[in-house]
Design a protein around this nucleic acid. Sequence first.
DNA 1: TATGACTTTGTAATGAGTACAAAGTTAGAA
DNA 2: TTCTAACTTTGTACTCATTACAAAGTCATA
Lengths: 144, 144
Amino acid sequence: MIQQAHKSNEIAAQAFSLIKECGLRPSPQRIAVAAYVLCYRTHPTADEIFTGLKEQYPSLSRTTVYNTLHSLVSSKGIMEVNVEPGIARFDGYTEPHAHFRCQMCNMIYDIDLIEMSFPEEFDISGVQVNLTGCCPQCRVNPKP
Amino acid sequence: MIQQAHKSNEIAAQAFSLIKECGLRPSPQRIAVAAYVLCYRTHPTADEIFTGLKEQYPSLSRTTVYNTLHSLVSSKGIMEVNVEPGIARFDGYTEPHAHFRCQMCNMIYDIDLIEMSFPEEFDISGVQVNLTGCCPQCRVNPKP
DNA sequence: TATGACTTTGTAATGAGTACAAAGTTAGAA
DNA sequence: TTCTAACTTTGTACTCATTACAAAGTCATA
């Protein structure tokens, strides 16, 4: 699951402290889920995380994946991304940024926000900027 | 369903042309669905539209509501709003604007975007800016 | 090691949305 | 007007993400 060996410790440690900061016991399953989200920058779905970890943790349950993700989201350790209707994706990068989903290849890109301002009377705790369209790759090389 | 009688014709006409522009036959059901979305600025769900129209159109089917909404969305006559995970909402106001969902009262506000810029290499055809937090009403008068 | 709290698991249920085919409706030709 | 083909609506059955819940397992600490 973790591709670059020299980064694996670092990510595991990050995952460990994320779980602790969230006030949860750092069980192997929870660390694995947190590490998956931190490691992969593909904005995985709960099912992708479950399937990706199933080989290494054969007893892993979907409920554990959902529980862990929800705990991490509610303590703001990770972000839930709703760039695609009907399915939740998760992102370990929590700094404010936009998401761009290519309608051709369905890949999701992170995009930094240059400038954005909102009225002050709203007490804004969460921002999701979700874009759709055609990515640079697909503009050059469109898939059928 | 339409509260202000003097506006009802106007909205029905707008709904009619929306359906036509979309290349569909303007059936009573389709006009009703389009008019509902245009009339109510509450970002209704498919189910809210279905329930709201059921009394006036007892034979109305959920499938018809979904079909009509999808046609209107794909021809950009209305917008699908994913400000809440797991449920699609619909918005007749199609100018670029943000949505703010109050986590206390769950109301969805329209917010005009003052300024926003994105990298040019992405061909952006859809923008969703979804905010959550606490609305001015709930700041003053929090509900338990 | 015993106890109680926390965690994981698996199954069943929920609920939004979709697929599909049958029934109904409409426009336009004959 | 009547017929026909295309379009539209309806209802049922299904899919699939997510949730509820209770039983089984694990761990920290006394």
